[in-house]
Simulated scan of single mutants.
Amino acid sequence: MPDATDADADADGLTVGQVSARLGVTVRALHHWDEIGLARPSLRTAAGYRLYTAGDLERLHRIVVYREIGLGLDRIGAVLDHPATDVPGELRAQRAQVAERIERLQRLGAGLDRMIDAHERGLLLTAEQQAAIFGPDWDPDSPAQARRRYGDTTQWRQYAERAASRGPEEWQAVADTMTDFDRALGDAMDAGVAPGSPEANRLVERHREVFGSYFPLTRQMQVCLGRMYASDPGFAAHYDGIRAGLATWFRRIVDASARAHGIDPDTATWE
C-alpha cells in the first residue's frame, strides 16, 4: 500500500516516513511488522495511507527495545500480546543468551590477541619458559630473528597460526618429538644406514611429519632445509653436536629421497 508524504500526514497520526525517522527503523521493517501483524498502524488517510497514533508509537518503541536486546519477532509478539507470558522469564532467558555471547566474544578477542602476538613474536613463551623447554643453549632472540627474516612468507603465517594455540605443555611435546627424531638420526648414522635405503627414506618422511609442527613441508622445501642444515654454522653445530658429520649425512638422505621422487636436489627451490 502506498505511503503518504510528510505534507499529507493526518493531524492525528504520523506517516511511515515520520515514524521511520523518529525511531531509526527502516520503512521496510515497518511494512514487514505491519504485514505480520506485529505493529499495524491504527489509522488510514482517505487515500489509504498508513498513519501511526501515539499508542502505535509506544508499541513500536517497545518493539525496538526488545529487538535491540535480541528477542526475535515471534517472542516480541508474545511479550506484547499475551498477558500470560512470563516477561521477566523471557528477559532472563535473553540475558543468559547475551552472557553466553559475551563470553564467546571475549574468548574470540583473547584468541585474536594471541594470534596477533604470534604473528609478531613467533613464540608466546617467556625467555625462562623457552630455556626450560628448548635447553640452556637456546637463544630467546631467535624467534625475533626469524620474524625479521621470514615474516612476510606464507610459512611464517602458518607457523604463527600454530604457535597461537600452543602453551608451554604443547611446545614441550613438540621439543620432545624433535629430540626423539634427532636421536633416531644419530642412531641411524651410527648403524650405517645408507642414503636411499628404505630405513633412510622412512627417516626423511618422519622428518617432514615432525617438522609439520611448524608448517607444512614439501619435498623441495625439505631439500632446501637439508642444504641449510649442512651449510649454516648454527644448524650444523646443532646436528654435529649430536653426531659428528650428522648435518651432512642428513642432507644426503634427504637428497637421495628427493631424487627417488623425481626432484633434482641441485635445482630444488623453496616451494
Rank of each mutant, 00 (worst) to 15 (best):
L246E: 00
L23S: 02
Y66V: 12
A258Y: 03
D137F: 14
A144C: 04
R59S: 05
A258N: 05
H119K: 04
L123I: 09
A84Q: 14
R219C: 08
A4Y: 01
R157L: 02
W156T: 06
I36Q: 07
G186S: 04
L60C: 04
G70V: 00
D3R: 09
G245E: 02
V19Q: 01
A191R: 04
A78Y: 05
L203H: 00
W156S: 03
D264A: 11
A4H: 09
G72V: 12
A237K: 10
P216D: 11
G241A: 07
P88T: 09
Y159C: 14
A163W: 01
Q145L: 09
Y214N: 13
V204Q: 01
R121G: 03
H31E: 00
D264K: 09
T53I: 08
A47Y: 10
R251Y: 11
A236N: 14
C224M: 09
G109V: 13
T267H: 13
S231N: 07
R95H: 07
F211W: 03
R101Y: 05
I69M: 01
G89T: 12
E161K: 03
H31N: 03
A4K: 00
L51E: 01
R50N: 10
M178F: 09
I133T: 10
L125W: 10
A258I: 08
S165W: 10
L246K: 01
G212Y: 00
G89C: 15
Q172E: 08
G192D: 08
Q155P: 15
A9E: 15
R183M: 03
H238Q: 08
V16D: 05
A46L: 06
T45A: 02
A188F: 12
T218G: 08
Y229T: 04
Q158G: 13
V210H: 05
R227I: 12
A21M: 13
H261F: 06
M178H: 04
R147F: 13
D137E: 08
R59I: 06
T15N: 13
H119S: 11
E58T: 06
V27P: 06
Q158A: 10
T269F: 14
T269K: 12
D56I: 06
L23M: 00
A47V: 04
I63P: 01
D176H: 04
